[in-house]
């Protein structure tokens, strides 16, 4: 791993301003992201894990310039991607590609597979007409589809096959980083396994880096080198996957590992169910986002926003009570 990250997310904030309602009332603004920071190195698969609404998709969209940050920035090889101009946005688009959860909705139903996959090549005028055809056949082969797929439409394929088409389309422009937003969440278990193997194989063969966005803890544990744990728009913990699994530091991480079906360790007792008042979101202007579900919360947790702090050379945690995991550091 080189010392400089391929992509850095720094203090990223995104606030969605609620539109005025018919009655002129203003609904609350949504702070989808609050000072998110993490890195992705070349060839690394980083899992971005969090429950629904935690801001995962919004981070992913910021990484491919589909969403403008309100504060902070994303940089690629040291360059702020919002500040790109001239030919550079096109260049960036070839470096970083996104794949989506719902393969059906993300593929144009009127285009044949050949044209879907070649879209990026056409837009960026990569290669000649003939070489593009060759390239598309190779791309389809690399995701396990035959040339017989070329002239068919996306809806003629199963969910798993559509996801492969989406991956081939993303690979067409030769990206170095793939942002994959819940790419296997809509697929059946047996199909999930095939797509996970495909993604891992791409990293092995092409040295691709990947942001694997998911709420599925076991899938993240299996595929990713490192994990970024998100909760209500904030990063709670960043850790190498193996160390995270044996020794989660943040109280939220511990809850996740204790509750994930199948991951539950024999020694770990049942976590008491969270009290109901905790199902309402806490006031996020002050204090820790996890405080009303946290078994370790103290008074300060309701007033001070815990900063994301480096606690070991490879681990970051946002918690006001480092003594909880201090022995493990």
């Amino acid at each position: 791993m080189s010392a400089f990250p391929l992509l850095s997310v720094r203090d990223l904030g995104v606030t969605f301003h609620a539109p005025r309602t018919l009655l002129g009332r203003r609904a609350r603004n949504v702070q989808a992201l609050d000072k998110i920071s993490f890195d992705i190195h070349a060839g690394e698969i980083v899992g971005i894990l969090g429950e629904s609404g935690s801001g995962k998709t919004t981070v992913g969209r910021c990484m491919v310039r589909l969403q403008q940050p309100t504060t902070g920035h994303v940089s690629f090889e040291g360059r702020d991607i919002q500040a790109l101009s001239g030919a550079d946005p096109g260049w960036y688009c070839r470096q970083v590609q996104m794949i989506f959860q719902d393969p059906a909705a993300s593929l144009n139903p009127r285009l044949r597979v050949r044209d879907i996959v070649a879209e990026g090549l056409d837009i960026h005028r990569i290669g000649t007409r003939e070489s593009r055809r060759e390239a598309v056949i190779d791309l389809l082969a690399s995701v396990g589809l035959g040339a017989d797929a070329l002239m068919r439409f996306a809806h003629e394929f199963s969910g798993g096959q559509r996801q492969r088409i989406g991956i081939a389309r993303a690979l067409a422009v030769g990206p170095r980083l793939i942002v994959a937003d819940e790419p296997v969440s809509a697929l059946d278990v047996s199909v999930q396994a095939k797509v996970i193997n495909l993604l891992r194989g791409l990293r092995e063969r092409l040295g691709l880096a990947m942001a694997f966005i998911s709420h599925d803890l076991p899938a993240v544990m299996f595929l990713c080198d490192r994990v970024v744990i998100m909760y209500l728009g904030r990063v709670m913990e960043i850790a190498p996957t193996g160390a995270f699994r044996t020794q989660p530091f943040h109280p939220y991480s511990r809850t996740l590992l204790a509750l994930a079906p199948g991951l539950r360790h024999g020694g770990e007792g049942r976590i008491p169910p969270t009290p109901d008042h905790a199902t309402a979101a806490p006031d996020l202007h002050h204090g820790c986002a996890f405080r009303n579900r946290c078994p370790h919360a103290v008074a300060a947790c309701a007033t001070v926003v815990p900063p994301l702090q480096q606690v070991t050379p490879q681990r970051w945690v946002a918690c006001l009570r480092p003594e909880i995991f201090h022995d493990a550091c």
């Binding site: 278990v189 396994a193 095939k194 996970i196 193997n197 891992r200 194989g201 599925d216 076991p218 899938a219 544990m221 299996f222 595929l223 996957t241 193996g242 160390a243 699994r245 044996t246 994930a260 199948g262 991951l263």
Partner: peptide, 17 residues
Amino acid sequence: LPVRHLGRPGDGAPPEL
């Protein structure tokens, strides 16, 4: 199921599913 293939940490990348 991925959960059945999580090697011990430090084992390196687990095999294919």
